[in-house]
Design a protein around this nucleic acid. Structure first.
Lengths: 352, 352
DNA sequence: ATTAGCACTCTATTTTATTGAGTGCTAACA
DNA sequence: TGTTAGCACTCAATAAAATAGAGTGCTAAT
C-alpha cells in the first residue's frame, strides 16, 4: 500500500492530537479538527489502512487509534526534515534560554571548582523548562592534559596538591608525608614537576613515567606526587552522570501506571544503567538521537522516548545530554531546546 | 485508666507484629504469637482499653488494630530506655559497617576535594543498609576559619585562587584579571594574604576588611582577591543537603498509595523542604530525634517516621543525618546504625 | 478475672448490569 | 470510483449488587 499525502496528513493529525491529550484518537475527532474536510467514515477507512501499515494501533477494538513506535518515528523524521526551514521560529523561547544561561554562567564561574554542580544546575534547569527528566554525562575522552600543578605545605606532615587540567578542571588532594621535607624541597619539586608534566596527557604521562622516575633519584617525593597526579587524571576522566527532574515523570499518567514510574526513577537515581545512552558509536557532530519506545537500550525506558544530543569541547572531549519523557513528548520543542542548550554549553565550557 | 505491665506487653506485641507485616493485628494473632498465654477474648478486652487510651486504633470496625503515633512514640521511648543495656548486641553488624567505612575512608581521601561526593557516598551506603531513604546535611556553622590561601597564575590573564579552610575543606576559583601582573607581585600578594587572613573566620574577616583595604594601597589586586575569599567562605558555609536511596520508598506499599510516594520523592529530590529537619534548636550532643507521623515538620512526610542524628566536627560545626521511612520502620536497627555511623563520621572528618 | 460462643459490622472481592465511545461494513450517492 | 450516511457490534469503564471472611463487642458461663 502507498502512503500518500492524505494518509500522512491524517497520521500527523492523529499524532498531534495524541501528543496533547494522551487519549486514543477517534475518526470523528480528526474529521472535525483537521482541515481535510472529510467525513469520519472516510477517515475511518484511511485509518484502517494506516493501521495495516503499522503506523497506528487500537488499544482494543472500539477504541480510537494511538501511534505505534513506527508512527512516532515517521513523525519525528518529518519534523527533522522540516526543521531547517523553521529553525528559529520561537524567538522568545530562545531569548528566555539565553537569559537563563547567562545567569548560569555567572554561577558557574563563581564555583568553578564544582563541575558536578554545574551539570546539576543545567540538568535541573533543563528539566524545569521541558517538564521531562534529564540527564547529562560529563565530558569524557582520555586526552585531558595537565596544565598546571601546585604543591603546598598544609601542615607539618601534610601536602596539598592542586592539579589543573586542560579546560580548567581543577582537582585537589591532601596527602600525608612521613618524613619531614623542607620548604626548599617543595619549591624544587614544584619546579621540576611543572617543567616535566605540563602539557602531557595521561597516555603520554604513562609512557614517560619510567623516564621521569629514573631521573628523580634526588627527589624522593616525586614518585608519590606523580602517582597522585596520575590517579587524579584517571579520576577526572571517569564519566559522571547526573540527572535532573526525575520526578517530572509523575506528570504523565501513562508513566505512573504499575511499575513503570518506579523502575524509571530507580534507574535514573541509579545512573548505572544510563551509560548505554551516552556516546553510542558515531561521533557525528551535533547529532540528535531519538530512541522511541522499544528502540531504547535501557529497558526501564521502553515506554518512554529518549532524545539525546552531544556537546563538544575542544580535543574531541564530548558529553551527552538527554531528555527522558513519555513517547508523546513534544519532540519539536525538545529538539529546539536541546539544540539551543548544546550550542550554549559548547560556549560555556570552551571559553573558560 | 492505668497502663499496667500486661497492657504494655500487648501493645508491644501489636507494634512488633505490625512492624513486620504492615497489616492490622487481630486479637487472635496476639493470643497465639505472644508468650502471655491469654485467650483472644482477654486480649480483645485489653486492646479495647489500649484503644481508649489512644495507643492503637482500628482502621475500621471489624479490623485488627494498628499503632497510633502516640503508640509508636511510647514504643520508641521504651527502646531508647532499654538501649544502654544492650548497646552492642549486634557485633557482626557493627563490624560490617566498620569495614564499609574503612573502604569509604579510602575513597574519601582519594577525592578529598569533593565534599559532596563523600556525603553522597555515605547517604547511599546508609540507604542500602537500612532500606530507607536518607539525607545528610553538610556541616554548618559560621565559624570556618581560613587555613591557607594560594594564588597562582594560570594563563596570561587568569589567576587561580586555592583556599583551604579549617577541616581541610578546599575551594578553587579561577579569576580573570584585566591588567598584567608580574610573577613578583603574585608572590608578594601571596605572602601578604597568608600573613593577614590565616586563622580568621568570616566574622573576623568581615570586621577587618576595612583595615586591610586601607593598608593595601600598593596592592591593587588585593581587594579583588579578598572579595573572592570572602565569597568563597560564604559559599562553603551554605548548608548543602544530599539525599540517598529515595527510591527505597517504593519498598513500602503503604507509602506507594496515592500521592504519598510522589510527594515524598519530589520533596526529597527538591531538598528545599528538608531544611526544617536539620539543626532543630537544641545542640545536645549525640541527640537522636524521632519524628513520628504528624510530628514531622515536613508535611510530605506525615505518613512517615523520620529519625535524625547529629554529627559534630570541631568548633561547633555540625551536620545532620536523617533516615526517612514508613512509620513501621525498624527503630532499633535505625538507632543502632545511626549511632554507629555518627561516631565514625566524627572520626572521619576530624582526623583529616 | 478469664474465656467460649455468637451475632454483628465492614472491607475486599467477585459478579452482573449499564453505558458510551468508536469501529467496520453495507448500501446509497456524486 | 471515491465519499458518505447509517446501523449493528465490540469492548472498556463504571456502577450496582452479591458474597466471603476477618475481627470485633457483648453476654453468659467458668
Amino acid at each position: 500500500m502507498e502512503l500518500d499525502v492524505r494518509k500522512f496528513k491524517i497520521l500527523e493529525a492523529v499524532i498531534r492530537n495524541y501528543l496533547q491529550t494522551g487519549e486514543p484518537v477517534g475518526s470523528r475527532t480528526i474529521s472535525k479538527d483537521s482541515d481535510l474536510s472529510l467525513s469520519s467514515a472516510t477517515i475511518r477507512n484511511e485509518m484502517a489502512d494506516l493501521e495495516d501499515m503499522g503506523y497506528i494501533i487500537q488499544p482494543h477494538t472500539s477504541a480510537g487509534r494511538i501511534p505505534t513506535d513506527k508512527g512516532y518515528r515517521l513523525y519525528v523524521e518529518s519534523i527533522l526534515a522540516h526543521k531547517e526551514k523553521a529553525l528559529s521560529t520561537r524567538e522568545e523561547n530562545i531569548k528566555k534560554r539565553e537569559k537563563e544561561l547567562d545567569a548560569m554562567e555567572k554561577e558557574y564561574s563563581s564555583k568553578m571548582d564544582q563541575m558536578k554542580d554545574i551539570m546539576e544546575a543545567v540538568a535541573r534547569s533543563l528539566a524545569d523548562d521541558t517538564n521531562y527528566a534529564t540527564m547529562i554525562s560529563s565530558c569524557m575522552g582520555k586526552c585531558n592534559r595537565i596544565k598546571f600543578v601546585q604543591l603546598s605545605r598544609l601542615e607539618e606532615q601534610k601536602l596539598l596538591v592542586v592539579i589543573v587540567l586542560e579546560g580548567n578542571i581543577i582537582r585537589n588532594k591532601v596527602f600525608n608525608i612521613t618524613k619531614n621535607i623542607t620548604e626548599d624541597s617543595i619549591a624544587r619539586l614544584n619546579m621540576l614537576i611543572n617543567t616535566t608534566v605540563t602539557g602531557l596527557s595521561v597516555d603520554e604521562l604513562e609512557r614517560q613515567l619510567g623516564v621521569l622516575e629514573a631521573q628523580s633519584g634526588s627527589q624522593p617525593m616525586l614518585r608519590e606526587v606523580l602517582e597522585i597526579i596520575f590517579e587524579t587524571i584517571r579520576n577526572a576522566d571517569d564519566v559522571q552522570i547526573v540527572t535532573g527532574g526525575t520526578t517530572n515523570i509523575f506528570k504523565y499518567p501513562e508513566l505512573c501506571a504499575g511499575e513503570i514510574a518506579r523502575d524509571l526513577i530507580t534507574t535514573l537515581e541509579d545512573k548505572q544503567g544510563l551509560t548505554s545512552l551516552i556516546s553510542p558509536g558515531v561521533p557525528e557532530e551535533g547529532a540528535i538521537r531519538f530512541y522511541i519506545g522499544e528502540e531504547t537500550p535501557v529497558k526501564a525506558m521502553k515506554d518512554c522516548s529518549v532524545v539525546t544530543a552531544t556537546y563538544e569541547l575542544s580535543d574531541g572531549m564530548r558529553g551527552t545530554i538527554g531528555i527522558i519523557g513519555p513517547k508523546r513528548m513534544d519532540y519539536e520543542m525538545v529538539v529546539e531546546t536541546l539544540n539551543n542548550i548544546r550550542m550554549r554549553l559548547d560556549d560555556l565550557f570552551r571559553k573558560t
